[in-house]
């Protein structure tokens, strides 16, 4: 099956600053892809590139196998809802109808606009002719979403759609998006911090940090500060535990990635050879609604590892929050950033 997106040798710079560097990435078609990562990791940049709003400084993006860029043929199949949506200085109706009008689709305009407006929970009778300045933040965000939904996009990219709106608006936005996915088979890519929502609808997750995309099995990060201890870098915890890793290949890297597959779990401390062994607490359990897999988060102060378990394996371990476990992993990080 042809992937939805393929990115090759991409570098995107703002001035001299590299905002995004992705050597190779594929995003599968259909379903929901969640984009995770701390603020400033490059999620918004990646979404703008995927939305074909900006052209990468270097490299190429393929949409369903075709090389694409701003104003290309496939340009109008994709739409983005930025984090701070901008409403045109026109009425709600004109805002939502804009995308259809510039596509020359003027048939049943009013009916289509009213329909998406009711999807996002705004009464057309009340809102259709409201000017842009007479909307609350949540209403503006919903109007912005409606103006994307009315296009029935093949790919819908959402940048923190629920981050800065009230709870009711967030709920309505989620419902409308879900409806679009199930009704039209729209492929959805969402950058969000809303874990509950991701666990509910995401088919796959991408983790971004410092402009790089991490493979999903590697999403365990260890941040500094590091001290040098012989030929190792050492991270000390307040409870006296120590973590040793071989230094990174380059000086400007300071975040270690530990692949989930290299982590072993023990119920009791057990001598290990040439490995880190540290005690963690089970802090969080999450169910991935779609796959039935269970995510267990283990924490030690500022370090959190999240591992995925099948139902059977999960019950054999008997994890409950507050349980103490020992994790072992190699002294060589899977990767550094």
């Amino acid at each position: 099956m042809i992937p939805l997106y393929e990115i090759k040798n991409l570098i995107h710079k703002y001035g001299e600053k590299v905002a995004l560097k992705i050597d190779n990435l594929t995003i599968s078609d259909r379903g929901v892809t969640a984009l995770l990562g701390p603020n400033g990791a490059g999620k918004s940049t990646l979404l703008r590139l995927l939305a074909l709003v900006e052209k990468p400084t270097q490299g190429q993006i393929y949409l369903r196998g075709e090389p694409v860029g701003p104003f290309c043929k496939a340009f109008r199949k994709v739409t983005l809802l930025p984090q701070q949506p901008y409403l045109l200085k026109r009425s709600v109706f004109e805002n939502i109808a804009y995308g259809l009008k510039i596509r020359g689709k003027k048939k049943n305009l009013r009916q289509k606009v009213c329909e998406v407006l009711s999807w996002v929970g705004l009464d057309p009778d009340q809102f259709l002719h409201r000017p842009w300045y007479a909307l609350s933040g949540g209403e503006a965000q919903r109007v912005a979403l409606a103006s994307r939904l009315v296009l029935q996009p093949e790919v819908l990219l959402l940048d923190e759609p629920t981050a800065s709106v009230d709870a009711k608006s967030a709920q309505l936005i989620k419902e409308a998006v879900t409806k679009a996915v199930s009704l039209w088979g729209t492929s959805l890519i969402i950058a969000t911090h809303d874990w509950a929502w991701i666990n509910e609808i995401a088919d796959r997750t991408l983790y971004l940090i410092k402009g790089h995309v991490l493979p999903s099995e590697m999403s365990n990060l260890i941040f500094g500060p590091w001290t040098v201890n012989g030929r190792f870098w050492e991270k000390r915890f307040r409870d006296g535990q120590r973590l040793l890793l071989e230094p990174p290949p380059s000086k400007d890297m300071d975040i270690a990635l530990i692949s989930s597959s290299s982590v072993e779990i023990f119920g009791n401390p057990k001598p290990v050879h040439d490995q880190n062994l540290l005690s963690f607490w089970v802090t969080r359990l999450n169910l991935k609604t779609k796959s039935g897999q269970i995510l267990v988060t283990f924490s030690l102060e500022d370090v959190s590892f999240t591992l995925e378990f099948s139902k059977e394996k999960f019950s054999s371990y008997g994890f409950v929050p507050g349980k103490k476990v020992w994790l072992s992993f190699p002294k060589k990080a899977s990767a550094w950033l």
Partner: peptide, 23 residues
């Protein structure tokens, strides 16, 4: 954000120009 919004909504270069001028 206007530019991003218009491109996201599928405006071509000419439509971008006209809408920006209108805004």
């Amino acid at each position: 954000q206007l530019r991003i919004t218009l491109l996201a909504l599928g405006a071509n270069r000419y439509q971008l120009l006209c809408t920006c001028i209108w805004e």
